[in-house]
Design a protein around this nucleic acid. Structure first.
Lengths: 218, 218
DNA sequence: CGTAATGTACGAACTGGTGAGTTAGTTGTA
DNA sequence: TACAACTAACTCACCAGTTCGTACATTACG
């Protein structure tokens, strides 16, 4: 299961490479599911955008549903890996919190497909995640980081103590996800593009300010 | 065309009532679209859950897409009407802001189908709203209320002046929408039900606190 | 030559949409 | 009032196009 050594690259050996074929299918499927939704995505269309055939999707993944599950697993793995690499122990609790918020902000902005996949999965009431041993119940590294930040902040007397890490994580995610996930209806109704680069820095600072002012209040 | 007088009610005359039939189709369709998504919902299934037939859906609405658009229009009309009735002019800007945030919180919590419909519409990049003369571009009454609250708050020296009504509205919506829209993946991954009644009051106060502390900071 | 990997062709079930005809109610008029 | 003419509301059966999935054949690697 672990990525194949691939040490001395077989180079241009494109065909007859199972891992390559699987990876290509997953990449195309991720984009297609994010673009059209689970029900809107077509297995035939995914296959067509691949250099292989539909038969391979069934050969490697078993079906549309399992393919979607693996797409989700792969998408969550990306953000987890980034969060795991975040080191804010050396920072002041307030700056650490701001860093985490901005990291979340940046990741969501640069991975709109991930945000869409999560929205889609919520429409389906997370039934696919429930069927994934890799995703269900496994906590998020960001939560550990956040827990330590809050502990330090409270110990230093900066932060209020009636909110836990999950609530803070929820508030940060809410802001960052909403900007991406709901930008279309928001734009259609209010005529403001939440992703306008001119407002990006303002919003990026706003998440941090929102949480910091809240946690340090009272 | 205008609704029949129906002054002295024809009472139990259930059949042959166009308005009743249309309303029934809309109600069933709203629930079905919210439940399964636009592509997941089946016109046949909507018809089956109705006391009328599929042909009537095409007779009155023209097609699946137009039916969905009317469902969206009707759903937005509900929240707009509630927001229009909100009167906070007599309140202190801070209390007024809190009232508006809590009104939004309550509405989203009690109308999960609306939140789902909006998510679904965003997956479709708001293309249906764009085709609706009733929805596209028409501003939200909540925005007018919010603008006045912010003006008063700034005039009184309470609020910072580098945020506009739309940003505040976005932050409030983000929190309220996220709780409902993403509760399934959140629960599957973190094992916490964001809708647990035990946390309801805490979250309800949190939206207000978040915004008030942010606006009064600096 | 055995087997993993791949391609082709096909089909059963489903889906949105429609054509054609029917029933109930309303209006005008003699 | 009687009744023909008209229209809105409705039903049913069916089609044309999709969609997921699979049986079967083929290729190439070790």
């Amino acid at each position: 299961m672990a990525a194949p050594p691939s040490g001395d690259a077989p180079a241009v050996d494109r065909s007859r490479d199972a891992e390559r074929t699987k990876a290509e299918i997953l990449a195309v499927a991720a984009h297609e599911f994010a673009d059209k939704g689970y029900d809107g995505a077509r297995v035939d269309e995914i296959a067509a955008k691949t250099s292989t055939t539909k038969r391979m999707i069934y050969y490697y993944f078993g079906g549309k549903e399992q393919l979607f599950i693996e797409v989700l697993e792969r998408s969550y793995a990306v953000i987890r890996s980034i969060e795991r690499d975040l080191d804010v122990e050396h920072l002041d609790p307030i700056d650490a919190l701001r860093s985490l918020a901005e990291l979340t902000f940046d990741h969501h902005e640069s991975h709109p497909d991930f945000v869409r996949l999560v929205s889609i999965e919520n429409i389906h009431r997370a039934e696919h995640i429930a069927h994934s041993t890799e995703l269900a119940g496994l906590a998020n590294p960001a939560l550990d980081v956040l827990t330590r930040i809050l502990d330090r902040g409270r110990a230093a007397g900066y932060f209020r103590d009636d909110v836990d890490a999950l609530d803070v994580h929820m508030a940060i995610s809410a802001f960052c996800v909403f900007r991406i996930a709901n930008r279309h209806t928001f734009n259609a109704i209010f005529g403001r593009d939440m992703l306008d680069p001119a407002r990006r820095e303002h919003h990026r600072r706003m998440v941090g300010d929102l949480l910091v002012s809240y946690l340090t209040s009272r």
